[in-house]
Amino acid sequence: MRYASLPLAGVLLATGLGIGVPAPAMAQNDPAALQLIEQLRPRTRGIRLPAPADATAPASPVAPAAVAPGGPSAQPAEAPAPDPAKPPVAAAPVAPPPLAAVAPGTTAPAGVAAVSITVTFPSGSASLTPQAEATLAPLGRALSSPDLAPFRFRIEGHTDSVGDAASNQRLSERRAEAVRGYLVAKHGVAPGRLEAVGLGETRLLVPTPDGWDEPRNRRVQVINLDD
């Protein structure tokens, strides 16, 4: 059940300054917040799909098959009969589809804007430590910046595989709610923009056997719901 920490992939651990300072004023001078803004921007906006074919365009005329004067109507050619002396050729095996890719450093689907952040909690607790708040400060400034203000996000709590699954599920839910509450109270993120869910040990970032202490699995994952 160890879930003592929920490392931002990248620079999130490097800075925790500016807690309580309005995000729009700070994010532009905060490399960690700027990186989070880029990671959490929607990936699919601005992509133009090819225009559909014009269904009203007249079809190209097809010339009829030439028929000899007085001759019979043209008949489709018959397929040659199989040669019993030649063994049938087996069809080439079809390769299985590739496994679904995921966004780097997360368990989110490929193409979805998401980040994983390691947030330190006391063992078995959902209370945010000062170190945890410092780690989450760039996220708060990023989410309340004008760049991300129009979007909604899911805050996911994840654990490692130590302890029983039911306890890990409950703990992940409480910690996701604690992170959401911090972002709302300290950075002014509108509550309606944040959805908190707990996923326990069901989506390990690093696959491990049961009961394995893996800090990278004790994390918070943030996903852009409008991507």
Rank of each mutant, 00 (worst) to 15 (best):
residue 3 Y to E: 15
residue 3 Y to T: 15
residue 5 S to C: 13
residue 5 S to D: 12
residue 5 S to V: 14
residue 5 S to N: 10
residue 7 P to E: 15
residue 7 P to F: 11
residue 7 P to R: 13
residue 8 L to G: 14
residue 9 A to M: 11
residue 10 G to M: 09
residue 10 G to I: 13
residue 10 G to T: 09
residue 11 V to K: 06
residue 12 L to C: 11
residue 13 L to Y: 09
residue 13 L to M: 09
residue 13 L to A: 14
residue 16 G to F: 01
residue 16 G to D: 01
residue 17 L to A: 15
residue 17 L to P: 10
residue 18 G to E: 07
residue 18 G to L: 11
residue 21 V to L: 15
residue 22 P to R: 11
residue 23 A to F: 03
residue 23 A to G: 15
residue 23 A to S: 10
residue 24 P to G: 04
residue 24 P to D: 13
residue 24 P to R: 15
residue 24 P to A: 09
residue 25 A to W: 05
residue 25 A to S: 10
residue 25 A to N: 07
residue 27 A to D: 13
residue 27 A to E: 15
residue 27 A to V: 14
residue 27 A to Y: 03
residue 28 Q to W: 08
residue 28 Q to I: 14
residue 29 N to D: 14
residue 29 N to A: 14
residue 29 N to G: 15
residue 32 A to S: 11
residue 32 A to N: 02
residue 32 A to D: 06
residue 32 A to P: 12
residue 35 Q to W: 10
residue 36 L to N: 04
residue 36 L to Q: 02
residue 37 I to K: 00
residue 37 I to V: 12
residue 37 I to A: 03
residue 37 I to W: 02
residue 37 I to R: 00
residue 38 E to C: 01
residue 38 E to L: 12
residue 38 E to W: 06
residue 40 L to K: 02
residue 41 R to V: 01
residue 41 R to Y: 01
residue 41 R to G: 06
residue 41 R to L: 12
residue 42 P to K: 05
residue 42 P to G: 02
residue 42 P to H: 03
residue 42 P to L: 03
residue 43 R to G: 00
residue 43 R to D: 02
residue 44 T to M: 06
residue 45 R to Y: 06
residue 45 R to I: 14
residue 46 G to S: 01
residue 46 G to N: 08
residue 47 I to R: 14
residue 47 I to E: 15
residue 47 I to H: 09
residue 47 I to Q: 13
residue 48 R to D: 04
residue 48 R to N: 12
residue 49 L to F: 11
residue 50 P to I: 07
residue 51 A to N: 02
residue 52 P to N: 08
residue 53 A to F: 02
residue 53 A to Y: 02
residue 53 A to R: 11
residue 54 D to W: 00
residue 56 T to F: 06
residue 56 T to Q: 12
residue 56 T to L: 06
residue 57 A to G: 09
residue 58 P to V: 04
residue 58 P to W: 02
residue 58 P to A: 01
residue 58 P to C: 04
residue 59 A to I: 07
residue 60 S to I: 08
residue 60 S to M: 07
residue 60 S to E: 14
residue 61 P to K: 07
residue 62 V to I: 09
residue 62 V to K: 09
residue 62 V to R: 11
residue 62 V to F: 05
residue 62 V to W: 00
residue 63 A to T: 10
residue 63 A to K: 04
residue 63 A to D: 05
residue 63 A to Y: 00
residue 64 P to T: 04
residue 64 P to N: 04
residue 65 A to K: 02
residue 65 A to I: 04
residue 65 A to H: 04
residue 68 A to C: 00
residue 68 A to S: 11
residue 68 A to N: 08
residue 70 G to R: 01
residue 71 G to D: 01
residue 71 G to K: 12
residue 72 P to L: 06
residue 72 P to N: 03
residue 73 S to I: 00
residue 73 S to M: 05
residue 74 A to V: 08
residue 75 Q to R: 11
residue 75 Q to L: 12
residue 75 Q to D: 03
residue 75 Q to S: 09
residue 75 Q to F: 00
